[in-house]
Amino acid sequence: MNAPIMTINNLKMYFPVQKSKGKPVYVKAVDGVDLTIHKGEIMGLVGESGSGKSTLAYTVMGMYKPTGGQIIFQGRDISMSSDKRPLSLKKDLQIVFQDPGSSLNPSHNIRQILELPLRVHKIVKREEMERKIAQILQMVELSPNYMYKSPASMGGGERQMVSIARALATDPTFIILDEPTSALDVSIQAKIINMLLKLQQEKQLTYLFITHDLSLMRNIATRVAIMYLGKICEMADTVEFFRNPLHPYTRMLLSSIPVVSEEEEALKPEKVISTGEIPSPVNVPPGCSFHLRCPEKTELCFREDPVMLEVSPGHLVRCHAYQKTAGVHVA
């Protein structure tokens, strides 16, 4: 395995919401996440809305100053907000947002949008701008004719291509993809995913791919982590992860996926009926935060939060059911 490019240690991101009896109450959006991402990897981070997966991404990007913990990127501590980070770091670390509608300025044309990163990071001279932009557009398989179009006149898929092009313009090493295809149709999603995979190969990129779509991760990620209420509850290599899902929440997610063939149906864990909803991160339940919805909860789960445990090499799970059988491969 390649060297780590990013190491996240016990990262915490709390947001104050209101005061109750003089004490501030916090939303614990990210609550102690440890994650190592290796160079050239596609790390899939999966969770429902409210799980804190986007907050994690935004904290890594420096949109917030972390409440606690550390983010190390290429050997540098970057646990600070983006305006304190050096410009060279912004060149290496890029993000593609979920909604291609709001991530492109509606009053700019594509040329203006792609010009910004090139100008800020002084990548090309003014005379060469047009040629460079055409080149970047071709990289994402868009014709240079798009240069003077407005985002509003383009389809969602094309807009997302432009967002990706903007992220690539500075030639980064690490890109966070925050649900880049969840607002798009499957036929468009397929094309964008293929392009992302091709670019990753060509440019030796590392992706942190945030999504709620487990079946998509099955096909593209090298490793998958599941997040629930600000914490990672299971993490493993993709193949192992889908062959042997351990955490009850993972199984519930898998069994909820609508599939299109019998072979896939067979892969789903025995129907774990999904119940309940993700609670508000303001009042995280005591003990294991999943116990409210868990079909296999025991008395212990109400009291004690389980710790992360490596049940087989590279397969980590945070559940009491596996604490006693540590080291034993559970089928």
């Binding site: 990007m61 420096g62 949109m63 983006s82 305006d83 410009l87 912004k90 060149k91 890029q94 993000i95 947002f97 909604d99 709001s102 991530s103 492109l104 300025n105 509606p106 009053s107 700019h108 910004l116 990163p117 800020v120 990071h121 967002s163 903007r166 500075t170």
Partner: peptide, 25 residues
Amino acid sequence: EYFVTAAELIGASKFHILFREILPN
């Protein structure tokens, strides 16, 4: 809006963000 965030993360100046990203809208 995400396009403002994107410009900030790219490292654009405050002048650019105020007058080129926000004002036209």
